[in-house]
């Protein structure tokens, strides 16, 4: 029973990881490419990590929860990376399929 659950989780995780990268390779402009790795890959690796947590909880005595830490970390950092990449791309005026919004002044704010 647990075996089937683990298999489903691992397979789902691997498929989503693959689709995320497929989006990265297949889509036309940078901003649409941003979506695949941010969402699909993150959920894929999340599934794999949950499978790992269940697997080690059963195999060894006691609950193994440190995989949750990586999952949390990934879910917090993936949107931050995507936001920064999008910001950098807008700053560099990367080619886009959609009309890019008006850029105001690009002067960086004072550090602090």
């Amino acid at each position: 029973m647990i075996d089937i659950l683990l298999s489903i989780l691992i397979l789902t995780g691997a498929i989503f990881t693959f689709i995320g990268s497929l989006g990265l390779a297949r889509l036309q402009d940078f901003y649409t490419r941003l979506h695949g790795p941010t969402k699909a890959t993150t959920l894929g690796v999340g599934c794999l990590l949950i499978a790992s947590a269940i697997y080690f909880s059963i195999r060894e005595d006691g609950i193994s929860l440190h995989e949750v830490l990586v999952t949390l970390f990934l879910f917090i950092t993936a949107p931050v990376s995507a936001h920064l990449l999008g910001k950098a791309a807008l700053h560099l005026k990367v080619k886009s399929l959609a009309a890019t919004p008006e850029q105001e002044n690009d002067t960086p704010p004072s550090p602090g």
């Binding site: 691997a14 990881t17 940078f30 790795p37 690796v45 950098a88 560099l92 990367v94």
Partner: peptide, 18 residues
């Protein structure tokens, strides 16, 4: 472009994790 390459690198990190 450079952001594409950084995005690819970031995805490679996550794939390594998987």
């Amino acid at each position: 472009d450079a952001p594409d390459r950084i995005l690819a690198l970031d995805t490679l990190y996550v794939n390594t994790l998987a």
